[in-house]
Design a binder for these strands. Structure first.
Ligand SMILES: [Zn+2]
Ligand SMILES: [Zn+2]
Ligand SMILES: [Zn+2]
Ligand SMILES: [Zn+2]
Lengths: 131, 131
DNA sequence: TGGAGTCTGTTATATTATTACATCAATTGC
DNA sequence: GCAATTGATGTAATAATATAACAGACTCCA
């Protein structure tokens, strides 16, 4: 999935996310973009939908929030799983990939004849500086 | 975490979940228990909170739903991670544990000095019979 | 008996996400 | 050029998920 030119709304949302130092909820993004003319949640959700599709943003299911991809260059996401460590104190997120975990999970799924489409690996806890 | 005697509401919620063949949302559980006197979401959420604490129920973050533990005997959950494969067609969930994946993730977290507290591993896709 | 702790019932509210419908702009095919 | 299509946008309304706040009941035990 290559990234086409972003539209105005997509660029605004992406910009907010890249400047944030922790994940943001859709409504937080909305609030940050009121000055730029955003009025309704759908403006955010529609932009996010595309950004997720392009792989430049990730959704953190366990905290209903969104974060800019930490590895925009490597398009590792195409083949591999992505995992997140989320600090419950400072909100900081570490994004990482591990082919070992990846293969192990995939092997198990294959043994069950389960066809994976989307995976979520999120660990909540406390980061080095917060513990 | 040993499981104490369940209270009336906890038992009702647990019973609904064990009889279901796929995960249920809190509000679906509420609807199924209207006849038993349930009127408000909190009655469900409070029971779920305890059942999660006892480890007899799991929460599936990616679909905002709850499922009874498939391995009530092994209290594998105390040490190890739990992963779920969720079929998007039939809703069926396969719960599994893998120490390899577990250790690998834990090693990585330790290398980052990240102290894990709660982990979510959920794979959505299609099960053997649905693909 | 009377706290302390836990469970419960109820109302209201907060947070997250989608449906429905209208408009606008760029693109395509003719 | 012009209809047809496609994709992006704006707006209002609503659905779905989750929590706050407060009051009452119940058990256990000092
Ligand atoms: Zn990424
Ligand atoms: Zn931290
Ligand atoms: Zn389990
Ligand atoms: Zn299935």
């Amino acid at each position: 999935m290559s990234t086409p030119q972003l539209t105005k709304n997509q660029a605004l949302v992406f910009d907010v996310l890249t400047k944030a130092e922790s994940p943001l909820s859709a409504y937080t993004i909305l609030d940050k973009l009121r000055d730029q003319g955003f009025r309704a949640p759908l403006q955010v959700y529609r932009a996010l939908e595309k950004l997720l599709e392009y792989g430049v943003v990730h959704r953190l299911e366990s905290i209903n929030s969104f974060v800019a991809c930490a590895h925009p260059d490597e398009n590792c996401h195409n083949h591999g799983l992505v995992a997140f460590a989320i600090c419950e104190s400072c909100g900081q997120v570490i994004e990482f990939h591990d082919h070992e975990v990846d293969h192990r999970l995939m092997d198990w799924l294959r043994s069950q004849k389960f066809k994976p489409e989307k995976a979520t690996i999120e660990i909540r806890g406390h980061c080095a500086t917060c513990s």
